[in-house]
Design a protein around this nucleic acid. Structure first.
Lengths: 355, 355
DNA sequence: CACAGAAGGTAAACCGATTTATTTTCAGAT
DNA sequence: ATCTGAAAATAAATCGGTTTACCTTCTGTG
């Protein structure tokens, strides 16, 4: 157990003294250097055991150019997506022997830039940045200025300086277009809310491009707003209020989780039933969507994959074994078809008996 | 801007050289010591400006017994509650000039204990621990053994060694009992799922105690399970399947967010309508609950308050200005009454927010 | 047997700050 | 002009490791 009663943590010198060798030797043993006699190695290990020695990771990093730390800056920690991403990043970098420092920019660009500088102060080996806005935001600019090693995630498109990892928003949205057009929809509303980020724009673009290519006469309405909650509610309200039932879209594609929630709420207020009157597909899948009534069709992003990819990419940059060119990874999404976009009982569901 | 082209971060010695003073003087200036001539102070500030100097927080902490870091260990980062808690903790400790290191134990006690040891390696000034299980878990034990400064949050009751901060689970649940009994319910199901933690037990206890005190003849069924998803679904299914409609409870109080989701799903599968056939109240309020149909009545925990309280308590411990006794803070919750627990149209039907 | 070369070990420098102990400066009193 | 004590400045020690440069031993070979 070796429970020292008072705060005196044993240092590497204590271990050295106990083992009867020098601190340098202890350091070698602990790092698995070959040039140590088996006997001494053993004595060091014994000393470590009996003293309960643990290395101070900060002191250890002091002399090095960079420390075994990876910084992660995310726009928020409350949404399930970034929560899951944080967990994934932590797991992956820990597996590689790095400590992760997670910080939230709370959707503020200033804070984002400040956090980048702070990560630099900590001399992190590398940074994962999920920008508030895009690869042209203040955080990425700070990364560039400070010449830091980083990977950009989620709300970005290709960048010539940093590797990027995103869900394949374009393709996934194009697939939603395929799906909705095949289901016979010819008038579709695209809705984006709260934060019109790079990702949202790409989704919009992916859907429109494919839909127009497939069927030029399709009518696509677009409703984007970056305002406060009340304004957004009203925007949707006005949209539906201002048109007769025949002139209404038969499907909505909401471009983010939050947007889905908003649309759902407003459709209900108008008494427009899903999926009878209108179909709903959302981007980003969350646990409540499969339990909701009706359950919500949604594009699921491969968060875990994105996290591992981001860390792997960052690590290979850190170790310098990458090409000079930056790479853009697009991870494939999965469309979870559920009741909200299916008429009749085409999809077998245990949850029957509507009202 | 002072953009040095190459990686050479300026050190305090560079600043000293530029300003023509010693490193010790620079350190004094930067810490606002009085005994520095105004002129030198100015030159130092100029040098800091022109070199773009930023202190290395790790090197700065090396000499001190403890560093200006606060560690936070949470059971998961994906749930909205802990996500919000993480954000709040980060904000509060940052305001006090501490860096926060957030780590997730991923519901594993072993990992929790390991993370505590790791926080100790980092020589954090203090630790916020939301245990996987309770104050008797492995994490708390490790904190005790290492004689660390810590505050326990959320899944705990009183402890004689550490201060604790929790929502007032007992009182909030008692209020739910008041509410449901007043609404005429005499047969109520209490459901807990996934992780039967300290908090869940307290909620159970709070409800039962109050309900029995108020009305001894009330029938309270309890369904708790800690198993995998499939088993839990089946447990609820069997419960409802095994009893005739007259023998069914008229209300369900689900003791956690996840439990609410499960119950909701199973009730729908059985065609039991909310709130006509059965009322539903959940513990823990999440954004989808106010948009769901019907919207879900839920106990909202004051996450932000809990976070600030936890940090404030920890800081006063760190600065040693606390009594020798440990304190238990119970934060008041708020019952958000919505459609799922209201018969008729007592609650205005459209989902209006703000206004 | 002498000697080159490898293997094993260590003292000391170093990382970037803070803090202590000491020295220098300078104003005011004698 | 000299002395005193406070104020200001600094050299050096320190924190806990890593790394370098150098010193001892061995080992094997000509």
């Amino acid at each position: 157990m070796a429970t020292e009663s008072k705060h005196k943590r044993p240092t590497i010198h204590d271990v050295a003294r106990t083992a009867g060798v020098s601190a340098a030797t202890v350091s070698k043993v602990l790092h698995g250097s070959a040039s140590v006699k088996a006997e001494n190695s053993l004595r060091v290990h014994d000393a470590v055991q009996s003293l309960g020695y643990r290395m101070d990771p900060l002191a250890a990093g002091l002399r090095l150019e960079q420390r075994r730390i990876i910084g992660a800056i995310l726009p928020d920690l409350q949404s399930p997506f970034f929560g899951a991403l944080a967990t994934g990043l932590e797991r992956a970098s820990e597996a590689a022997g790095f400590t992760t420092i997670i910080a939230s920019s709370r959707e503020s660009e200033e804070r984002e830039a400040d956090l980048v500088a702070r990560m630099n102060d900590w001399r992190v080996a590398g940074t994962i940045l999920a920008p508030v806005r895009s690869e042209r935001g203040m955080g990425a600019a700070a990364l560039r200025t400070l010449d830091m090693c980083a990977v950009l995630v989620d709300r970005v498109s290709a960048d010539d300086r940093f590797d990027t990892v995103t869900a394949d928003n374009f393709e996934a949205s194009a697939n939603v277009a395929d799906f909705l057009l095949a289901a016979g929809h010819r008038h579709i509303l695209l809705h984006g809310a709260t934060r019109i980020s790079k990702a949202v724009r790409t989704r919009l673009d992916g859907f429109s491009t494919r839909a127009r290519a497939l069927m030029p006469e399709v009518q696509i309405d677009t409703l984007l707003s970056d305002d406060d909650l009340e304004t957004q509610h009203r925007a949707i309200h006005d949209y539906f209020d201002s048109r007769s039932p025949e002139d209404r879209p038969t499907a909505v594609f909401s471009l983010s989780q939050y947007s889905t929630l908003l649309v759902l709420s407003e459709l209900r207020r108008h008494g427009i039933r899903i999926p009878d009157h209108i179909a709903l597909v959302g981007f980003d899948d969350v646990d409540w969507m499969q339990t909701a009534w009706p359950s919500i069709t949604a594009v699921a992003q491969p968060v875990e994959t994105m996290a591992s990819r981001a860390i792997a990419t960052l690590l290979s940059r850190i170790e310098g074994k990458s090409t000079g060119f930056s790479v853009q990874y697009l991870e494939t999404c999965d469309l979870q078809v559920r009741q909200s976009a299916v008429l009749g009982e085409k999809i077998p569901r245990p949850i029957v008996r509507g009202r």
